[in-house]
Design a protein around this nucleic acid. Sequence first.
DNA 1: CGGGTGTTTGCATACGTATGCAAAGACCGG
DNA 2: CCGGTCTTTGCATACGTATGCAAACACCCG
Lengths: 344, 344
Amino acid sequence: MSEPTRNRRRVTAADVAREAGVSQSAVSRVFTEGASVSGRMDARVREAAERLGYRPNVLARSLITGRTRIIGLVVAYLDNPFYPDAIEKLSAALQEEGYHLLIFTTGRTEMDVDRIFQELMDYRVDGIIAASINLSGDLAKRCREAGMPVVLFNRGTDQGGISAVTSDNVAGGRMVAEFLLRGGHRRLAHIAGWEASSTGRDRLQGFRDHLKGAGRPLMYVADGAYDRHRASEAARFLMGQAVPPDAIFVANDHMALAVMDCLRHDLGLRVPEDVSIVGYDDVPMAGWPSYDLTTVRQPTRRMVEASVAELMRLIAAPARQATTTRIDGPLVVRGSARLPEDRT
Amino acid sequence: MSEPTRNRRRVTAADVAREAGVSQSAVSRVFTEGASVSGRMDARVREAAERLGYRPNVLARSLITGRTRIIGLVVAYLDNPFYPDAIEKLSAALQEEGYHLLIFTTGRTEMDVDRIFQELMDYRVDGIIAASINLSGDLAKRCREAGMPVVLFNRGTDQGGISAVTSDNVAGGRMVAEFLLRGGHRRLAHIAGWEASSTGRDRLQGFRDHLKGAGRPLMYVADGAYDRHRASEAARFLMGQAVPPDAIFVANDHMALAVMDCLRHDLGLRVPEDVSIVGYDDVPMAGWPSYDLTTVRQPTRRMVEASVAELMRLIAAPARQATTTRIDGPLVVRGSARLPEDRT
DNA sequence: CGGGTGTTTGCATACGTATGCAAAGACCGG
DNA sequence: CCGGTCTTTGCATACGTATGCAAACACCCG
């Protein structure tokens, strides 16, 4: 850890007070929304502040108000394009509310729960948005017990007491099953997300249950671990079976794009003629002409809105009951899967 | 803006002091690296802190030390995959140094310099990493003048006094020109980044100057504005010329991938048979088999290391002279451009 | 044992700010 | 003009912490 020198001097409220010939508390009141201050005083102080280049120190304020206006964002990695997009939107939405995101990256390895928890505590963040696939329930629980508002983004949870915003993954998986069956597919396979991930389990569950109910049980499930390389291996495994599948539902787009590349470029297969592919997320790349991926759209904007709204509610009333919000997204039909006959 | 209630009570150093039967300053010293404290005292205080769940408040500390351990990250958008990757690496590197990134997103529109500057001041960030394409020189200059360490990431600057880390864009453009000429291309075009962007200008300059020196002047330059849609339009424009180019150097991969899709899927052309494409960045998608893009690799890891190192130096000695670091990256030859004969 | 030197500890204060409270000021009505 | 009521202002204090300084303690050597 670097050892920096002491910070240079900065303009304080006391300087502004002196310049305007008023008290420090008047200066504070001018910059505090809702405080009682006359129009004359307001103008006088603001002019002095402008002259001196003064801005209130949010962090000093936080000692009194107990509010830092900082939201901790816990995220594993950013190479799945779903997350950069979501973060951009989260940041914009929170900036509108006067908050900023402080990033805590966990990387792909087993999360060091103690370290992340301590760092979140260090900064007295007003709340946490957790968008990390390897987020342990333990961390979320500890944060919640320490009184921090927590919202899981695109993460579900088996534990009560933690708020979460997801798309309706069960319904999404079901929608894909319906669509593929109507397209005449008979040998259905799934490349799953990650066994510990509830979003991945829910997508599989919706898909599997619907197939079963239609008398077309799921033939294969292979583990993709939300990783491109693993997904390619899973695709090779599936297509190497004596009776290969004619459609594969892949648990997210990030993997689905890799599966398509593998099928076409490594295995010399055609998509959708030889095998249909459906993904989940509708990341920007899904719409690129080279892929033209049929996929369930995660309604990122609405998920972001719901997450920010829930976080604001928790910040306002920390003892508030946790909620789980599931938001429906449509199936976006592009060119990677054969169409149901009544759709041509 | 939400109006949150007052924060709940938290464990303080005074509580730990009481629990351990020592002074508050002893507690502080135990958690301050380099402070003089006996092993016995250290153990006693840490045990009490552990029992009570105490963590020092970084923000309260910042009032004394003048150090927040927060770095402001100014970024426009995250849909160019170069930036998510860089941010992930920046975050990891800074976490190693005990810092965290606070995000300030500017969006794609004309940047509101006053707002961003004020918000950066509000949080008393220890330094700023600016990775925004629409970052105005004015903001960087104002921050620097206000005493904040600033490092431009993948941004150059025409103004002195601001540190910057880029790849060697001129050399990169030159490398592309050499490569394409050796591949027998005769009609060279460029889809440029953004007229106000020095990285874009430097890439064009390296490309153009080398072509000119070789007696093969650049035929066309079209503006892509670092935007997929604009890049596709530029590609259409170029290929619609009476004498279309046989090679296009695109100022970044984000646009190059869109150009490839447009050429193949909209214009029915073959890449590289009909027209070679070379990009810049080597984002993850460039290596995907559907694209297999030949491109200049921006050495993200080394750029991140250089940026963090420079930022740490500036934090330690704010009056330090600004530096510009240019890091070479290789040309990564894949399948989107015809090879020089001596390369087959 | 006493003196010299180095280490450790607590006191008092400061960092930049918000806020409760009492006093002063402003305004209105009788 | 006076009394009542509302608004505004400054004082004093608190938030959670680090640090200069002086006193106490510990250790070593002659």
